[in-house]
Design a protein around this nucleic acid. Structure first.
Lengths: 208, 208
DNA sequence: ACGTGTGAATTATTTCACAGCT
DNA sequence: AGCTGTGAAATAATTCACACGT
């Protein structure tokens, strides 16, 4: 390959955040360099895979010396567009939505929950400093607050409708907590979080 | 292939719960049969993949007629060991742990949270009818209550220690909410839930 | 001597395409 | 006519292995 690589496999993209996370950990331990061997050990993967993954984007290492952690981190964060903050909103202010809003892990990584929406006008209030607005005001808020990511925490039956509206509002990414597979246009990306599916996959192995 | 197939790819196992979920949805709509074509449409995958996935386990369909939903569901649920309930425990009774305990989706699918553990003796009490016990009593409770799955909701720094203890207590499956990749012996299975990783992968596509 | 970057080889996964049953 | 189950073919992903720079 020569310069800029096109159409990188999704499976590779999905591993990059793991590298970022582990490099952050190493940095906190005052490490300055790391080899693909060591990174592979920490992530229980092969050095070859790590080097191959990086090779899609450029040459980040030094032969005989490994990778400079600060440099590699910055490169990976740039590739993933993490060197900026992203404005998000939560749709569904029930128990799950409240838990998501109260979770501090998003903000820590630059994903800011700017507003929440719910159909019920009863629970219009604040959750952990996040205003809860009527779902009818979605379009206005998403545009005014430059929100690019929607976090869906409504019941399964309502999720497709909510997602359709989000897409119409110009949302570019959806994190879907509803246990269903939404239909999404292919200029919008979507990741699904369903711990029950994980438990069910796991159950296959539990009797072995 | 002939009778019982060995060593089925994990990627296949991970898709089975999606089929189960969708078949349940169809059942609620009073459908009695489904083709791989239709199931593929609902899950945005190819009919060939679905048929190939099933073929690892047997012949569940009828040529020219598709699959009987009740029959297929029962077969898939048996393969995944879902036709029973699983006892679980939650380790970490902080905000995240409380949210997990309050989430009704686990019980609905047969994953029963029988007890929670925490180091802090201050918060020893009940969360949604689930007793919170000291982490020092873990071994005793896991054995007495026949708990096979541990749901880890402690901070990242404590997770490996907790997981090591769970493994020593004979736990067979771990659902890990801590944002780290634990070291696990290979007779124990582990699935990780980290919504931040999903957002970070998604961010790659948001500028495209 | 160490460890990256990368073509080539290997292995895994998906898709094709069609014989055969209902 | 419709649709499964499955070998064969095609594509994708991983791993090997080594030339080469530090």
């Amino acid at each position: 390959m020569n310069d800029i690589e096109h159409d990188i496999p999704e499976i590779v993209i999905n591993r990059l955040p793991l590298y970022v996370r582990t490099l952050n950990d190493l940095k906190l331990l005052n490490q300055t360099t790391v080899s693909s061997e060591h990174l592979g050990f920490l992530l229980q993967t092969t050095p070859a895979q790590i080097r191959k993954d990086f090779s899609h984007f450029g040459k980040f290492g030094k032969q005989g010396r490994g990778y400079n952690i600060d440099f590699l981190l910055d490169e990976l964060r740039n590739i993933l567009n993490l060197n900026k903050t992203w404005n998000t909103c939560v749709i569904g202010a029930g128990k799950l939505g409240q838990a998501v809003i109260n979770y501090q892990g998003f903000k820590k990584e630059g994903y800011l929950i700017k507003v929440a929406f719910d159909i019920s006008t009863k629970k219009l209030s604040n959750i952990n400093d996040v205003e809860v607005r009527s779902i009818s005001e979605m379009n206005q808020y998403i545009k005014e607050l430059n929100i690019k990511i929607g976090i869906v925490t409504v019941p399964s039956a309502d999720a497709q409708g909510v997602i359709d509206r989000l897409v119409q509002c110009g949302i570019k990414g959806i994190l879907n907590y509803a246990p269903m597979k939404p239909m999404i246009p292919n200029n919008v990306s979507c990741m699904n979080i369903d711990p029950v599916l994980s438990l069910q996959s796991m159950s296959y192995y539990l009797d072995k």
